[in-house]
Design a protein around this nucleic acid. Structure first.
Lengths: 272, 272
DNA sequence: CACAACTCTTAACATTTTTTTACCTGCTCT
DNA sequence: AGAGCAGGTAAAAAAATGTTAAGAGTTGTG
């Protein structure tokens, strides 16, 4: 969560000019803008971890910024050998791998990594003119590739696409039930006896966070951090208000909440 | 579903200069990429089932990934005998068959399978230098072959070609229906009660993407990536405008849309 | 080549929804 | 009783979306 200054967010992204990364030293022309809030992982419990293996520091910094802004956890390595080591040791959820690197080519890293961890998705960064088919084909097993110079926007989209493809579980399996209420995390949908309950996005994020921390007393500050983000400092009373709304929509008897309980002096607690 | 494919846009978009961002030197993206969404079987009634018979796990995994990404259903077997069994039991629409395998050679599997199910198309994976003529000729009856090492793109193209050749009905299978609306993906045609609804290419591409991701909330950015492509940076509001147009043409009551719903703060969602 | 028809994009304004803040009441504990 | 906290309510503020229209570019046609 980097600059989630959504307060000062420009209206449309055509105008904003968040510092992007030059995709290569040569192409300063591309001005990616990526500072709009997108479909990031809201209130996710554990972050998705991305490993960036790339020898050019500026590129790493730029990618790190953007990925972290999108809510991913980023680790990095600056040559092939250490990249392979980190990939094996730190269990990233996805690897972004430059082809041209010191010590060990990205192609070899890819091959060796796929041999040991066939399931970890890899996106290759290739220069134009390199043999794309080899990179992505079965010989190496990369899941996708982007040719330099690329827009951060394209890379980000492909990362998300690969993640969606690799773990479609996120789509369906995240359904929670308590009492006669059914919460589908992925589809932002809450049902009571099959009838939809309309929640605002904040309300839903709040509920999702509660659900993922059952029976745990959550302080207002913690809820603010998790649901509103670190760069937002609304009044803690804001949380209360949203709790009220949630209860009104969720509880059978909002006067006597059964699911979202108050822990006097501490915060709130969700009980399935 | 790339717009490129459905749009009769002869010229490169490189001369697109309105947003101040040059379309980049990267407009060499004319070459199709295997991993882009293509003319897959969108919203087809039932998926086309591919059987992969191959003993190398990494290869199976890679093929599975790619075929599933293209919208096929994949089943697999890791040796000749079980491959033949599954081919007979599970009625795949196409079989990808490695020649070199334990227990029973792919050649024998092919021969026996063709003897019992003459209609099921088979694509063989052969190593360079193997006797191609025998494989494809009448003796064995395979429909096509690919020599290792091959690019996934080539294999995918051959699979589609064979499927087209074998079942020209595939054209009609790409019809999706909801309410009294009928959408023919391949023919860019939308009918309501048999009467055509005229959609622009963007509108159609948008609808097609919605249809292929039913009940999933799609952010504007994701729609931009999928429908407009990576090299274009239109305003996110552009999506809204097109949604409006789509609704006006598609919904019975555009004021209260039933098919294309807005998810406030997140994007849009299509419900059949 | 001019002209009309059409598409796409952007902008401006209207409307709706969400989020935040402010103010007030009641409760609990010392 | 008074301080501190929980919670209700309403309204202001902000953001997102709907709507309409105008400009630029394309296509098709005479």
């Amino acid at each position: 969560m980097k600059s989630k200054l959504s307060q000062a967010r420009p209206k449309d992204r055509a105008n904003d000019s968040r510092s992007g990364i030059p995709a290569t030293a040569t192409s300063g022309a591309e001005q990616p803008r990526w500072n709009e809030r997108r479909d990031t992982q809201v209130g996710a419990d554990k972050k998705i971890r991305i490993l960036i293996v790339e020898d050019e520091p500026a590129m790493v910094a730029g990618l790190r910024d953007n990925f972290e802004f999108e809510g991913y956890e980023v680790i990095s390595a600056d040559d092939g050998v250490s990249g392979l080591e980190r990939a094996l040791a730190d269990h990233p959820d996805l690897v972004v791998l430059d082809v041209m690197m010191p010590r060990m080519s990205g192609l070899d890293v890819c091959k060796q990594l796929k041999a040991k961890r066939p399931s970890v998705p890899i996106i290759m960064l290739t220069a134009r003119g390199q043999e794309i088919d080899k990179v992505v084909g079965l010989e190496l097993g990369a899941d996708d590739y982007v040719t330099k110079p690329f827009s951060i926007r394209e890379l980000m989209a492909r990362v998300k696409a690969v993640l969606r493809r690799v773990s479609p579980h996120a789509n369906e399996l995240e359904v929670y039930r308590f009492s006669d209420v059914e919460v589908n995390i992925r589809q932002n949908e809450v049902l009571r006896d099959g009838a939809p309950i309309e929640l605002s996005s904040k309300e839903f994020a709040l509920l999702a966070y509660f659900i993922s921390h059952p029976a745990e007393t959550l302080s207002r500050d913690r809820l603010l951090d998790a649901v509103w983000g670190y760069e937002n400092y609304p009044n803690t009373r804001t949380v209360d208000t949203h709790i009220v709304h949630l209860r009104q929509k969720l509880e059978l008897n909002p006067e006597e909440p059964r699911f979202i309980l108050t822990v006097h002096g501490s915060g709130y607690k969700f009980v399935g």
